[in-house]
Design a protein around this nucleic acid. Structure first.
Lengths: 344, 344
DNA sequence: GCGGTAAATGTTAGCGCTCACTGTTGACGC
DNA sequence: GCGTCAACAGTGAGCGCTAACATTTACCGC
């Protein structure tokens, strides 16, 4: 016996029928037990479970996906970047999905153009994913999404609020408004803004919130310095702003830009916060250790992730939440980079 | 037209037989074309391709995975963290895999203990992944890997060099050696070290390199301040070090710890680099904008990613590279946080 | 024109699972 | 005692694909 099998090189993984044979039931009963269907006698259930354990049986998800047309996989599409926001979000989502028994297949695209987004969606559909999440913070990304068939559950994060599709977003406008108002209340005449790239919805929302706070206070709305989220771009903008004595308060669209601006100010002898106040956005873990520790706005990525998953799960179960767009509210974190202006 | 199809509830996706029928061939020929087998007439090939395009056919990867026992999916296991190194690595790997036609299924584990690693491996094997990559920078992670059956191609990144399993790593020892030597050559008597968590191989390697450089130069080896990669821990260590006038040079195990130390020094009136020189590790994009811009060590994550993928692909194809452990060499980036000590 | 060979294509049998059925019990009411 | 119905279990088909083998076609030299 041993010799006969010894020549067999392939040790096939146990299948459902093997479990069934061992437990003395049909494969269908095994299936029922594994999918926790009702109408299985407790005694049978235990016998099957024992057999599963004895054989070390693990269901073949490919086979299940083939017959059901759905895998227990959620496809995520994200931009290729190590930006703090998107990466944190991705990590949070992976955790949330794992907790619900879903694996996450991530597809990074070089840029968020319609072509690469469409390709990524197709790839995920080939894989028969149960749903798709797109971290689509730019206008170009959002366009491509219009072409995705409605039968694929799809949730966008930080996408275009106007599109009316299921989406989860952080209330950027509110966060920026808080930040700007905080500077204004400290006594500054007005607040200058170093924005993110204009094609990002996040950046646009932050601009809006900043502008609204200014207008509500009757403050002048100065021209915007446009950055690209990097510290380098914040530095360039900061160099310009440092030369203008009337600039006493700056709201940067993220912490790294704020860091660049801070550096530029310091280099030019404009001390922060004595002469210039700065507020960032993101609350990257290091921002508490900048010089000075940075006042900033924190987004709860964990909340975004779980909300997204809930929405997606609802969509998969055919819930009529087509237009749902839950919003997560960010929060101001006060540290030491804001002070009243000297003139006061 | 619209009305006719509107009543049909299920619009089945085209399958291989549909393509075959349209092209006037057998489904097997379609399969051959799609898998670029030889022995298909050019004319037939084109006819099949045209049919594929006309129907918008996309192969069902679940079906293929079922019959071949392998999906075009690579499973990655990583720790739940937004640490710069692991996240950058992950992103780089996803890009590299996509270029080779592989999707990446990511499983984040709360901590790198044997239990969660084993569970993650099982989950990936259920999915019939073609291979597994484990970012296993801690000793606890490495233990769990011993139990994985040999037939699953598995490559470790930054794991235990002693284990002898396929692994890709950055030469931390070399990087730390360079950094320390750089400080020594600037004229410092010795170099103090703020290390990473001791159970991380990266941290251990950096300690070794630091110590070797010191010993080679005949310098005293001061006690280590242990951190946990965060700026906060660097700050705490920095506060201690700032109080000791003999400390003129610090090598921090990563940039964020360096930032924390930098802040502590500044707060205590010890200016960097005039009174104290600091070197970090990682070259996070913002480190060029710290005050002062940080001298650090850059790791090429792209190279780690492509090397890992090559190794894994080799393993999948049955290559006899069981013991391969390619090493990527990091590079010193000189900026402004290092200067000769005052006494000189 | 004929066998022989190689190239090109077709046929058949599953992979391991779920779905939609069809049986088989046993408890219960009248 | 018989029908009824629910609870439980089994049977067979087929999801869409690839592997192995079977068959047809094209082409060559003599």
């Amino acid at each position: 016996m041993e010799d006969a099998t010894a020549t067999s090189p392939v040790v096939r993984e146990p299948a459902m029928t093997d479990v069934a044979r061992l437990a003395g039931v049909s494969h269908q009963t095994v299936s029922r037990v594994l999918n926790s269907h009702p109408n299985v006698r407790e005694q049978t259930r235990l016998r099957v479970l024992a057999a599963v354990k004895e054989l070390g049986y693990r269901p073949n998800r490919a086979a299940r996906a083939l017959v059901t047309g759905r895998s227990q996989l959620i496809g995520v599409i994200a931009q290729n970047s190590t930006l703090y926001g998107p990466s944190s979000l991705l990590a949070a989502f992976e955790i949330a999905a794992a907790r619900q028994g879903f694996a996450v297949s991530v597809h990074r695209v070089p840029e968020l153009g319609p072509a690469s987004i469409t390709a990524a969606v197709e790839r995920h559909r080939d894989e028969r994913v149960a749903g798709i999440v797109v971290i689509a913070p730019t206008a170009s990304a959002d366009e491509a999404l219009a072409g995705v068939p409605a039968e694929v559950p799809l949730v966008t994060i930080d996408g275009d609020p106007e599109r009316g599709a299921p989406m989860v977003a952080v209330d950027q406008e509110h966060g920026a408004h808080q930040a700007t108002k905080h500077l204004l209340e400290a006594g500054h005449e007005t607040v200058w803004h170093i924005s993110g790239p204009p094609d990002w919805f996040d950046a646009a929302g932050r601009i809006q919130g900043w502008r609204r706070a200014l207008q509500e206070a009757g403050a002048e709305v100065p021209p915007i310095s446009t950055g690209d989220w990097t510290a380098a771009s914040g530095y360039r903008a900061g160099q310009m702003l440092a030369r203008m004595p009337e600039v006493t308060a700056v709201f940067a669209a993220n912490d790294h830009q704020a860091l660049g601006a801070l550096r530029a100010m310091t280099e030019r002898g404009r001390s922060v916060p004595e002469q210039v106040s700065i507020v960032g956005f993101d609350d990257v873990p290091e921002s508490a250790y900048y010089s000075p520790p940075l006042t900033t706005v924190r987004q709860d990525f964990g909340a975004v992730a779980t909300t997204t998953l809930d929405l997606l799960l609802g969509l998969m179960n055919g819930a009529e939440t087509k237009g749902a767009q839950p919003v997560i509210t960010p929060e101001l974190v006060r540290r030491e980079s804001v002070r009243a202006p000297l003139g006061d």
